[in-house]
Design a protein around this nucleic acid. Structure first.
Length: 553
RNA sequence: AGGGGCAUGGCCAAGUCGGUAAGGCAACGGACUUUGACUCCGUAAUUCGUAGGUUCGAGUCCUGCUGCCCCUGCCA
């Protein structure tokens, strides 16, 4: 995916071919979310595909809210969806609504009726279902199938005028009740719904169904490639049928191409499930940092770049697959690596006293903010006689290959001095409450000391100046699939959120909401945009750091 | 009377007119290292679901078989 290597996928191959053969000369795509929920990482893949496909060919992409069903939509989502797409870094050419075309769509339905290709059916929903047949048996034609054009026109007009109750009649396309593709067995294309629509208010009481409305919307907007997910493959013949039978669209029709939607390990994207998590209080809203929603990921500290890079890395294909979460984490770290300031914070503290360091003295040591990006500058970090280090960075009886602190061993305090453990103090229960060390002044950071080396470098924080802030440590919300087909609710990870107190360098007091830091050796942490207050940030762990350390016996 | 798709190392995924298996992630070695991070080197498919066939030669063409996904909303 770098330099010379061209990215290839079946969609772009297909477009290249059509362009080469002169079948068309432009590329126009659309992203058509239904405004009934928040966007998640799965949508991000669809957004990525639609927008980058257009970009690649100097084409355009429309954002079109698919609002043909008034019962399910909410204006709240119309706002949030736009925000999320912009946040991801994409700009649409036109902002449209499926409802913008209600009148035209209605006229096209009449065209079909006049051509004898659509009829009003009085059958009940249940009968329509029964008459449709099954996957292995033929369908039966409705007794109303052969009504005359005039009668159909009259009835359809009455439907529009509100003469009938919901469900009393529908308009159906007259295709083939014997088609092996059930989608083609005279699909319903208009239903009666006396419902308030967020855009058209009470203007309509009949609404087109997706299969009829979508191809028309695409065609009206000049969309050339209607990219959607695999489950619409069976609907493509109907998509084509609609356009083929409408005079306006006979010539150059948009082409529907289906790709596999994203499945991410230990992640569920279903709206139903996400909503349940929120309703039952397992998640604290659509932007809970453990959720795969774009607003959740944003609050978690994941950047749009990381998401786009991820989408590029997973590729586009037609095979149902499940991507390992590790790939996503890699993209998150890879993105944050040069951007985030690296600071020290201790999440599970144990006190260290440097016995030969002057009492009450505090010295300020310059430490680079990011060794891999010197442009980020440096900061002064207070150092003193009493410090906190990570509990797991000390062991009284170390296993082999343990490079951290243990009695008699010397380690480097990052950015400061070498210290050597002399002894420990325990409480009555045998818990270590203090580690006494001595330091060597000659080993101070920056002095170029090379007389001896240490195997380990650990992070620390000065005890009297450090700040205590809340940190949320996240893990996967769902436990690994054990192959027993458990309900998702049974896979909820009880450890998905662990709240701890982080002992932080004083500089973190000024952290701004949304800012992401690397807590050295602990991971990347983002300042929560909701819970943080001025001078009192709350940190969300975006992702931990990799570690090749394995505890040996 | 079923139809439509998909099968390439642990996970994604490229594979042009058939010419002798890209890349990323993960894993494992090793080097480097003031993050056991990063970086850097190195390692795995005689083999492309399977059985045959065509061919000098097949992941790529043909046939059969198997497995998985989607379709019987007046949802999208």
């Amino acid at each position: 995916m770098e330099d010379g290597k061209k990215i290839s996928n079946f969609i772009w191959d297909f477009i290249d071919e059509e362009l080469a053969q002169g079948i068309r000369d432009n590329v126009y795509t659309r992203f058509p979310p239904e405004p009934n929920g928040y966007l998640h990482i799965g949508h991000a893949k669809a957004i990525y595909i639609n927008f980058t496909t257009a970009q690649k060919y100097n084409g355009k992409t429309n954002l079109r809210f698919d609002d043909t069903n008034p019962a399910k939509e909410d204006t709240e989502f119309v706002e949030s969806i736009q925000q999320d797409i912009k946040w991801l870094g994409y700009n649409w050419n036109k902002l449209c609504f499926g409802s913008d075309y209600f009148h035209q769509t209605y006229l096209y339905a009449i065209e079909l009726i006049k051509k004898g290709l659509a009829y009003v059916d009085d059958l009940t929903a249940e009968d329509i279902k029964n008459y449709r047949g099954t996957l292995v048996t033929q369908g039966i034609e409705s007794p109303y199938r052969n009504r005359g054009v005039e009668e159909n026109l009259e009835l359809f007009t009455q439907m529009k005028e509100g003469k009938f109750a919901d469900g009393e009649k529908v308009l159906r396309a007259k295709i083939d009740m014997n088609s092996p593709n059930v989608v083609l067995r005279d699909p319903v294309i208009y239903r009666i719904l006396h419902a308030y629509h967020h855009n058209t208010k009470d203007e309509w009481c009949i609404y087109p169904l997706y299969d009829f409305a979508h191809p028309i919307q695409d065609a009206i907007e000049g969309v050339t490639y209607s990219l959607c997910s695999l489950e619409f493959e069976n609907n493509r013949p109907l998509y084509d049928w609609v356009l083929n039978n409408l005079d306006d669209f006979k010539k150059v029709r948009p082409r529907q191409i289906e790709f596999a939607r994203l499945n991410l390990e230990n992640t569920v994207m279903s709206k139903r499930f996400l909503k349940r998590l929120i309703d039952e209080g397992i998640a604290d809203g659509w932007d809970d940092p453990r959720l795969p929603t774009l607003c959740g990921l944003r609050r978690r500290g994941v950047s749009p770049d990381a998401i786009r890079n991820f989408c590029e890395a997973i590729g586009i294909s037609k095979s149902n697959s499940e991507v390992e979460f590790a790939l996503f984490e890699h993209m998150i770290r890879d993105d944050l690596k040069p951007k985030a300031n690296r600071v020290m914070a201790v999440l599970d503290p144990v006190k260290v006293v440097i016995t030969n360091y002057e009492k009450d003295k505090i010295e300020y040591l310059p430490i680079s903010n990011n060794q891999d990006n010197e442009e980020l500058g440096e900061r002064m970090v207070p150092f003193g006689k009493e410090l906190y280090i990570e509990r797991e960075d000390f062991m009284e009886v170390p296993p082999s290959k343990y490079h951290r602190l243990y009695p008699g061993n010397e380690v480097r305090l990052m950015g400061a001095y070498f210290i050597k453990c002399e002894n420990v103090i325990k409480d009555n229960d045998g818990n270590i409450i203090q580690i006494n060390c001595t330091y060597d002044e000659k080993t101070k950071n920056g002095l170029g000391f090379t007389e001896r080396k240490v195997k380990g470098t650990i992070h620390w924080v000065e005890a009297t100046t450090c700040e205590k802030f809340k940190a949320n440590l996240y893990e996967q919300l769902l436990l690994d699939d054990d192959g027993t087909d458990k309900d998702y609710m049974e896979r909820i990870n009880p450890q998905s959120l662990k709240e701890v107190t982080a002992y932080c360098e004083p500089c973190l007091k000024d952290a701004n909401a949304g800012e992401v830091f690397q807590f050295v050796r602990n991971g990347y942490f983002a300042v929560d945009s909701k819970a943080s207050e001025q001078g009192m940030p709350v940190f969300n762990r975006t992702v931990s750091l990799k570690s090749s350390y394995k505890v040996s016996q």
